[in-house]
Design a protein around this nucleic acid. Structure first.
Lengths: 149, 149
DNA sequence: TGGGTGTCTGAATGATGTTCAAATATCAAA
DNA sequence: TTTGATATTTGAACATCATTCAGACACCCA
């Protein structure tokens, strides 16, 4: 047994998918070459970043979902942009946005359970430049990545 | 000119993509049929919900991103689950989660600009069962749908 | 009206997904 | 350890699809 599954999940989280040109052509009754032309245009324009899979996160062991607010220290220890980008790089982070107001950023985080979340939270709090955080646990995920669950 | 672009964006938001089996097989040095077998298994297990595109939302006219908190009225006018599901159905809503605490749900919403957002907000506030809302505007999107921007 | 650019299309080709039967691996019960 | 039932892997054959290209067509502006 080669345990391909985790490798596939890893690859599909960011890409390794492609449009179904023939199916789209049938769906909207256009020539296959026309669809191809328009998709390539979207890609070269930069409108499409990637093609990827959307998972049933409970099924792949990432059923615990939290919105995490982060406040950075005001004094210039490290560059805020650098900190934010580094935190966003964690594999558990689905999305990261900068805010104005009481909190500097909001993260959407997915882990297996509360214990794994606590480990990640400790790692983030330990970072230079992070002052405090606040966690908002999702009780039920109704929609994610534009897909109804 | 047939204006295929918006139709493609519509379709790609939820699906009409498929895995690149041959590329994956080359990447992790396995037989193509093996990859095919494992992907089908993931699909029948329900681990994969769909394959879709991730956009540069600024590019497709959805550059304005807001986290919207919603508090529902406690009195039983309409079923909370129904309201939540209906609100989640708006095309502008990327994600919707139920919360515990001061707010009942958090939405991630994408619109072209502030004006369009205001229209959507009015529509949501006008709904039976919605008591109040609070909007948190994203100043900068660092990561979305597991993809760094 | 005319030319330049962008878009659409059918047909040919090369690449890819899919299927299948056989080989191999896994695991639990005897 | 052996056995058998089940799950996984694999190469080869086949069906389907993405891609390319040249020509037709549409659009825009001077």
């Amino acid at each position: 047994m080669k345990n391909i599954r985790p490798k596939l999940i890893e690859l599909f989280k960011q890409g390794y998918c492609t449009p179904q040109i023939a199916r789209i052509a049938r769906t909207i009754s256009e020539a296959s070459a026309t669809i191809h032309y328009n998709i390539k245009k979207l890609e070269t324009e930069g409108a499409i970043r990637t093609y990827k899979a959307v998972f049933d996160y409970k099924n792949i062991g990432e059923g615990f979902c939290v919105y995490l607010f982060v406040k950075l220290t005001s004094k210039a220890g490290a560059d805020p942009d650098t900190i934010v980008t580094e935190i966003a790089r964690y594999g558990e982070v689905e999305s990261a946005d900068l805010l104005a107001g009481e909190w500097d950023m909001i993260l959407k985080v997915r882990t297996k359970d509360q214990d794994d979340y606590y480990d990640l939270l400790k790692a983030i709090l330990a970072r230079e430049g992070v002052e405090k955080t606040s966690s908002l646990i999702s009780l039920k995920q109704v929609k994610a990545e534009f897909v109804l669950l």
